[in-house]
Every structure is written in structure tokens, then in C-alpha cells.
Amino acid sequence: MGDALVPLLLTLKVASVATVLALCAGVVAGLALARLRFPGRDVLDALLLLPMVLPPTVLGYYLLVLLGSRGTLGAWLDRTLGLRLVFTWQGAAIAAAVVAFPLVFKAARTAFESIDADLEKAARSLGYPEWAVLLRVTLPLAWRGIAAGAMLAFARAMGEFGATLMIAGNIPGRTQTISIAIYEAVHAGRDDLANLLVLLASVVCIALLVAAAAIVRRGHLAVVPV
């Protein structure tokens, strides 16, 4: 049982950090693209959705080239901060955040765009400064859509395999997430462990989807942005 708990707990840790990162970036990007108009907005939108459609190993390779010890960004990080991301759970979290980001971004943008602009105008006409409009009107109205997107992002981050394997490797206890643990268990002939891991992962993902649907239903949103 311990063999199954370690990867599960590690996966939950990595997925949580990844979701927080994706949330921060996704909400900011979603707000920017929902509210601002500028040339090339649609191109930027497509670029930001790219991690959702690119094969995970392609993403993993880009990240490796960028963040590897001899990579563009990675070498600088190693020199100045002594930070190595390859083969660490932080690297795994970054890989998972990159694949989860489009889910949050898309949900956030749709949520912000579906807010009745009149409500925000009313708040402004009543004297609210912009930051108060954002905090008191916009975000409370958009939070359900964003939360549903965050849950999908968490599920995606939990299941991330290709990019994680390339960046973080397969180190039990440190970077062996549940998907990688299942892969290893199957190949080592340990079907009993594989079955348990698959069951745990499935239960968590189903619970997340049910919760996301419940949140959306209560908010009467017509469509879950995917």
C-alpha cells in the first residue's frame, strides 16, 4: 500500500502546485484577452492554447531544451541560483502547469466574457475604482467558470505523463508521479500495484469531474469550457 501512496501523494503535491501556477497565469491571461482589444489577439489566443494540442513529448522536448542544465534558461538558473529543474518535482510541476494552463485560460476567458458588462458599468457609475470592480463584481461573477476550469486543470496535471517523464524523469519518491508509477509497474510485471494505482487515479479524477460539474450546474452556466 505504501508503494501506491507515495506516488499518489507526490502527484497530488505536483498537481496542486501546477494548478496554482496555471491559475495565476490563466486568470491574468483570460482577463487580458477578454477585456483588451489589440491586433493579433486571436493569434495570441491560439498560441496560448497550443499546449493543449501539442503532443506531450513535443512539449517535454521544448521544456528540456529550455530548462535543461545546458539549455537557454536552465544554464542561467543553474549559474545564478544554483537551481536545477530537470529531475526535480519542481520541474514536474512546471511541465504539468504548462499543459494545464490552456484549460484554466480558456475557462477564465469564457467566464469573463460571459459577464454582463452592464453590471460592471453600474459598479463604476456608483464610484468603484477599477480594482474594486474587479474584486467585488467581476471575479465573484466569474469564479464558477474559473473553478471548473481549475478542476479540469488539476485532473490534467495529475495525468500528465509525457512531458513530466522527459523533464523530471522517473525517480521513486521524488518525481515518480502516479502515471509514471503505473507505467513502471506494468513493465515490471507488478500488475497488483498497477491495478491499485489505476483505481486510485480513476477515483480521484472521477471525483474531480463530478465536483466540477456540480459547481457549473449551480452557476447555471450553459457550457463547461473545454
Binding site: 535543461g68 542544465s69 545546458r70 529531475f87 524523469g169 522517473n170 525517480i171
Partner: peptide, 20 residues
């Protein structure tokens, strides 16, 4: 300190890339 690889050629790749 150990980094586990899926096969011996991946070990070689990790060393060639300077990741280990």
C-alpha cells in the same frame, strides 16, 4: 543521488546532455 532511466541508452542520453 540516483536518477533511474528506462533503458541503458537513456542513461547514456542523460550523461550526454549533462543532466547528470
Amino acid at each position: 543521488k540516483l536518477v533511474l532511466a528506462q533503458n541503458v541508452r537513456q542513461v547514456l542520453d542523460y550523461v550526454a546532455r549533462g543532466e547528470v
